[in-house]
Amino acid sequence: MNRAATAAAWAISGVVFGAGLSLSGMINPRKVLAFLDVTGAWDPTLVLVMVAAVATPMILFRVVLRRETPFLDSRFYLPTRRDLDARLIGGAALFGVGWGIAGYCPGPAIAAFSVDLREPAIFCAAMIAGMYLSDLVPQWRASGQPA
């Protein structure tokens, strides 16, 4: 496959995604925390961000997946698991706590380097440390036994 075209595809997708994070307000941790603050001065903007961000692929993924392969690779790489396990739920719960403390999820935390250095640098360094830390947590099989 054409390596330059693949590199350009990743870069352009990132640019469009980053513009969306900035335009939508997701990049602003104050706005994100105001969305999560349902008993305070609630800002419902992120409901609309989610609606538009979900509706677009909900319609267009179908069109894309009518193709046998993507334009620049030999196959689609789609998650296939459908089971629920403690790792998924515990991980999601922990993610939400971190999101609620600082107001950043991974995309906005990285895109926020366009706004400021201090906050995204501290947050992203800790986030990357957390990702390496997750490599130390043993994998669990669906049966609940350590793999």
């Binding site: 991980g91 999601a92 922990l94 993610f95 971190g98 403390i101 600082a102 991974p106 986030m127 990702m131």
Partner: peptide, 12 residues
């Protein structure tokens, strides 16, 4: 927050 987000998103 960053540590919880990094660990949580990988586990989840």
């Amino acid at each position: 927050g960053g540590l919880a987000v990094g660990l949580g998103t990988r586990l989840g």
